[in-house]
Design a protein around this nucleic acid. Sequence first.
DNA 1: AGTTATCAGCTTGTCTGAGGAGTTGATGCA
DNA 2: TGCATCAACTCCTCAGACAAGCTGATAACT
Lengths: 222, 222
Amino acid sequence: MIRRHPLAEQAAEELLRRIGGGEWALGQKLPGETTLAAQLGVGRSTIREAVRELAGRRVLESRQGAGVFVIAQQAAEDWDQVLRRAGITDVLEGRLAIESEAARLAASRRTPADLKNFRRTLADREKASATAPDDRYVEADLAFHRSVVTAAHNAVLSELFDSFQPRIRRAMIDMLRLDDKHRHRHDQAAHQAIADAIRDRDPELAAARTRDHLGAVRSSVS
Amino acid sequence: MIRRHPLAEQAAEELLRRIGGGEWALGQKLPGETTLAAQLGVGRSTIREAVRELAGRRVLESRQGAGVFVIAQQAAEDWDQVLRRAGITDVLEGRLAIESEAARLAASRRTPADLKNFRRTLADREKASATAPDDRYVEADLAFHRSVVTAAHNAVLSELFDSFQPRIRRAMIDMLRLDDKHRHRHDQAAHQAIADAIRDRDPELAAARTRDHLGAVRSSVS
DNA sequence: AGTTATCAGCTTGTCTGAGGAGTTGATGCA
DNA sequence: TGCATCAACTCCTCAGACAAGCTGATAACT
């Protein structure tokens, strides 16, 4: 018999299916190890490992002497996984949502240090865009966007942006190689959102950004 | 010897510490099970369960015949956990980011079914706000906001909103009991963001919303 | 020399049997 | 009724045995 996955993992998946199927309700106790082992036709230690895996995924919880209990109907879907599976358009729109609000907040909360950081990452980005766009430009651009989010001084938005970063980075690099037309559209949209958010709200920030904007236009024309 | 946690969990924590401490780099192989068991002074099956738990948390990956490998430097921080820990202001600003963008997109993407759903949840919400605000109002309000996000037809924003829901719900209920002044400010901000986003972009959607807005004002005055 | 086959020795995977430790509910007593 | 006791159940841990899979070195072949 050929198996691509270890028995323990298969058992974990099977348990997950049954839990999702409502065989055992939330908070309810599962049958004992020996019973489950007999039901699934595997050894006790295999069941134990399956349970331990689901415990790691916060679906089950085992209490010595009492039993194994369901603490979540299904595995909390990994947020990173959602991002990986989602279409790039959806992801970019999500990023836009975060950055727009972050830029708005940044305009009213930025400290002098934030402004300095903003200018620095902006200069790096401009330097990187002097040559043909490459991985270095992608990193510089991400760092610039991160500096805006940082200036918002909001932990949730920061975490959120960071969780988007890997996906965005990969997409940008891919688009770079394909010289995709979408890149400009989405990239411009993100930059425009930042510009819109800080215009009138923070002249100094806007002024710093405008210089960059001109630089971006210049490089896109060349 | 008194143990609050099973040995296997303790072993998992210890491994996690060592991984985080850089003892084994990303992608690198851990020592064999027997070696680890000797090092930590536990049985082999205990080590196996610890590894299995970390595999469930996507930190380790074991390949039969090859070894156990590090696939993440640390346990991916649970997104729900970030939200729980974050201040309510940060959370509400995050929600505002999501809903603003969602409303903008909804204005251009909503289907007739979305509009119908929008009107329905709006009516429910108004009905609930007729009396003194209670839990039912909170649910109705959340459902209304969800209908806006749904109409954006963006999986990332939808997932994001859902992940915010429990935290927002709890906060709203708490604020309800305290009759907190913040509630109005943030709530109005969220509703205003929706209004701003759809005004001029979707007259029909805006018209449906305006009726609700008047209702909200009326109830807040009474 | 370069390529392929084989294989020894690691690794993880699974099962079993034996106790240890904790929980729970029934039982019996005051 | 209230409480202590305890038996039966649960998970927890260990040890040993063998299966299954991978890897690198060696041998054989072209």
